[in-house]
Structure formats: structure tokens, C-alpha cells
């Protein structure tokens, strides 16, 4: 896969300098922008167009902390999609909360509605606590990682480095579950049916 950090000529770190990133983006776009290749032959023009669109995608990835972290992890061979070791307790929490939401939607009497809304409020609070705990740990892991230099390939990482990135990948996937559940809870609290679109 393409190393976007490399393409943009910046260090492969969790934190990036956004001004520098933006500057690099304009430089790269200037080189490949389709308008610069109007007079070129068709093959070259198509190439420039594809390049330009790749740069846009890479920029979108690098600009936002979460996609950027996911990209970094993927480069090291830790794609979030392969984080199968999700704690069953977390999945159960999601399942139970979603069932509460379904109950709330089905409830017709006032008392049940009130009780469910109250319980959902507690769920929302718990979610918020867990999410901030994850974000705090993520921030610390990112900071610690960025402090030192690391090999570019997973095979050359030390055992603690592997553990470091493995934990990061795990946290990001756990966060995804909490996030999706959070949307559903919020929608339920606002009396809307959750229509999940990722």
C-alpha cells in the first residue's frame, strides 16, 4: 500500500504539523493538477488526473488524527479490520444497550418510556467515560511513539514496539464500537430511529 507520509515527505508519526502538511499538499497538487496538463497527450493527462485524486485522498487521510493513526498502523501491518480480539464484554455491552434502545422505541406507556430514557442516560454517561479513557490512553501512546525513531517495517520492530502498536490498534477498534453505540443512543434520546451509515 502507498505510504502517504512518504509521499508527502513528512515523518511517519501520529502527530503531524498541519501547516506543513497543507503546504506539501499544495506543492504536490501544483505538480499534478489537471489544468497544468491540458496540452499534454491524453495518457499523460489521465495520469495527472489520477495522481491528483490520489493526493486528495492521501491528504484527507493525513489531515484527520483518526484516519492518520489507522494509516500508520496499517503501514506497520496492523489494519483495524483485523482487530478480531474485541472483548466479548464490550460486544455484550453494545448488545444490551441496543436492546434497551429497541425497548424504548417499542414502549407505549409513559412509565416504561421514562424508565428506559433514564437507563439510556446512564448508558450514555458510561459511554462517555469509556471513550475519554480510551482517548486519553491513545494520546499517551501516540506521544510516546512519536518521541523515538522507529524502523519502517513491522519485522524490524522490537517486541515492546509491536505491543505498543498492537494496543493502539485495539483501542481504535474499541472506540469504533463505542462511537456507533453512541450514535444510536443519541438518536434514541432524540426520539429518532437510528439509521446507521458509516
Amino acid at each position: 500500500m502507498t505510504d502517504h507520509f512518504c509521499r508527502f515527505g513528512i515523518d511517519r508519526t501520529f502527530a503531524v504539523n498541519r501547516d506543513e502538511l497543507e503546504r506539501r499538499f499544495y506543492e504536490l497538487q501544483l505538480q499534478s493538477h489537471p489544468d497544468r496538463h491540458v496540452t499534454a497527450e491524453i495518457a499523460r493527462r489521465d495520469e495527472a488526473l489520477a495522481e491528483s485524486s490520489d493526493i486528495n485522498a492521501a491528504y484527507r487521510t493525513l489531515r484527520e488524527p483518526l484516519p492518520r493513526a489507522k494509516h500508520l498502523l496499517e503501514l506497520y501491518g496492523y489494519p483495524i479490520s483485523e482487530q478480531k480480539k474485541v472483548p466479548q464484554t464490550l460486544l455484550m455491552t453494545v448488545m444490551e444497550a441496543q436492546e434497551k434502545i429497541a425497548e424504548l422505541e417499542m414502549a407505549t406507556d409513559r412509565a416504561t418510556k421514562q424508565r428506559m430514557a433514564h437507563e439510556l442516560g446512564a448508558v450514555a454517561e458510561d459511554l462517555e467515560t469509556r471513550r475519554s479513557a480510551i482517548d486519553e490512553e491513545r494520546a499517551k501512546l501516540a506521544k510516546d511513539w512519536d518521541k523515538a525513531m522507529h524502523a519502517a517495517e513491522r519485522t524490524k520492530l522490537t517486541a515492546p514496539e509491536e505491543e505498543h502498536l498492537g494496543r493502539m490498534a485495539q483501542l481504535i477498534s474499541e472506540r469504533a464500537y463505542l462511537e456507533t453505540l453512541h450514535w444510536s443512543v443519541q438518536a434514541a434520546q432524540e426520539g429518532k430511529a437510528a439509521f446507521i451509515q458509516h
Partner: peptide
């Protein structure tokens, strides 16, 4: 079987 999708946080039983 209780499984989840780690990228989007969907859960399936």
C-alpha cells in the same frame, strides 16, 4: 455467535 466489525463498530449476534 457474537461478533463485531472492528472498523465500524457494528455488532451481530
Amino acid at each position: 455467535g457474537l461478533v463485531g466489525a472492528p472498523e465500524c463498530g457494528d455488532v451481530m449476534r
